[in-house]
Design a protein around this nucleic acid. Structure first.
Lengths: 278, 278
DNA sequence: GGGCAGCGATACCTTGAAGGTATGGAAACA
DNA sequence: TGTTTCCATACCTTCAAGGTATCGCTGCCC
């Protein structure tokens, strides 16, 4: 199968309409129809149910849609990584803005001190971006937080595990407490948990404010419009007007370093080694 | 990039010889030369150093070789999974012969009892085969053993953790012991640890016998030619003439169920769910 | 050092497949 | 029943993938 065929199939499978798919691909509809039926013939598999009224995916078609997306992603990542390898010898590390604390600084220092280390570009990005950057070949390595981030399809090493704390406005009644439980926080009227964007950039419906970065979250908390439960290391970089209270029954957060499963360059191996030795 | 270009590049990068690569690809040498230099021009990256005497990979070329192999694997897996989805609605589970004990039987029973379950074909294979089967799309799901098997690039759920025991001939002096340490086993003269094949099917050099399956291992141990450290669940299926002794400082073995990170079919999800509920 | 062998690049030609336009034909709908 | 919508077919054009012949460079050997 050629990537062109996969791109064509993905377009049709997503649009479920040959005309629109052809438009999106910038070709005419008849060659697209032909390409798809040729693909079906070569695979010996019917991928689409067509009538003159509607196009639907068959079961194997749905399988191919998922697999084709992954395969195309791999091809595009290959291209990007090759280009990056040619342009700069350095590594790109993707990290959440919220995690850009002590650990990251220590890691960068430790790695830079190694013999033969290469420059590391740090990309601070939103919570949903990192996986995409890594998967699509824009980044070589990322710091992720379990159990929130999915490490599906990556190689990982665990770096540290920490408890979580509630971040509250300094004036909040809970401020005097030495500990809290999740149920108290969720039941807390008037201080809803904010909503982060999903992978596709949209927000699930809910009462909390929609946020997209860490600074924004801190401001909302300071304004008394939200509360959050975050790893306890946020305390080292807490703005004025906010306090933290340990949450006993919040899950432990594990920071992991993650990289694509092939990609075993010397530079990457060195960075991972430095990370595990912290 | 088209998969054809990637295949051409991989062939040249592996052979480091345009003539031989062309032969392997079943085309003439000139079109291959042209295809590669066109790829280099389009990427804007020099992939190969050529002289009339030798061809070598550049640094970005080495990156593309790794990435291209992974991408081609993904494309081929897409094709195979689509074909399999069309032919049979069932799942293929890859398991080591050694792990085909209680856990597997319980899993299959539990899943078969679920409403809406599909037939599960079990492929019992050598230790290095499973990853390949899963990666290449011949299998949908596998039972792997941490820390021995690599789960790089897969989604996993942990199923169970167990201690390891030494498997010894019944006549061995250690048979009377209630526990052992790894150092005692490795220092044990005349009973070397057997060697399993690497991923590429070759064997690392070493003193132990080369083995490729579980039955063979058990026979070698019974013959007094080898010893092994295995998960304690082997005891339920131990042949005559062998005994086990717990090994205190051997790493715990975790059995995980692993599947490719996309591939979230209803059937697979059901099987994974059944596995986690065991 | 000159002839030679090995190997990649270039020149030039052929052909097949990718893509375009026009149109057919089935199905829903008014 | 006429109309619209939408996929498939027929037929043509073009471009790029692939083939053959050959050049040019570089070690190598007598």
């Amino acid at each position: 199968m050629e990537t062109r065929e996969l791109r064509y199939f993905v377009a049709v499978a997503e649009e479920l309409h040959f005309g629109r798919a052809a438009l999106r691909l910038g070709i005419a509809q008849p060659p697209l129809s032909r390409a798809i039926s040729q693909l079906e013939r070569r695979l010996g598999v019917q991928l689409l149910h067509r009538s003159s009224r509607e196009v639907t995916l068959t079961e194997p078609g749905a399988v191919l849609l998922r697999e084709a997306r992954a395969a195309l992603e791999a091809v595009e990542a290959a291209e990007r990584r090759t280009r990056r390898a040619a342009q700069s010898p350095g590594l790109v590390l993707a990290s959440k803005a919220a995690a850009a604390g002590e650990l990251l600084a220590k890691l960068l220092d430790a790695y830079a001190a190694e013999p033969g280390s290469v420059p590391v570009d740090v990309v601070l990005c939103g919570v949903a971006q990192q996986e995409r950057l890594l998967r699509e070949g824009h980044a070589d390595v990322a710091l992720l937080h379990l159990p929130f981030d999915s490490t599906a399809g990556f190689d990982i090493e665990e770096l540290s595990t920490e408890k979580q704390v509630a971040v509250l406005p300094a004036a909040h009644p809970f401020t005097g407490r030495t500990e809290l439980r999740m149920s108290e926080l969720t039941a807390m009227a008037g201080l809803p948990m904010p909503r982060w964007p999903e992978r596709d950039g949209t927000y699930l419906p809910g009462p909390g404010p929609e946020i997209h970065d860490h600074t924004q979250l801190m401001q909302l908390i300071a304004l008394g419009r939200a509360a959050a439960v975050l790893p306890e290391s946020v305390r080292t970089q807490l703005p004025e007007g906010l306090t933290t209270v340990p949450v006993l029954d919040a899950p432990m957060v594990t920071t992991v370093i993650a990289w694509p499963p092939h990609a075993r360059s010397r530079a990457l191996a060195g960075l991972v080694l430095a990370a595990t030795r912290l």
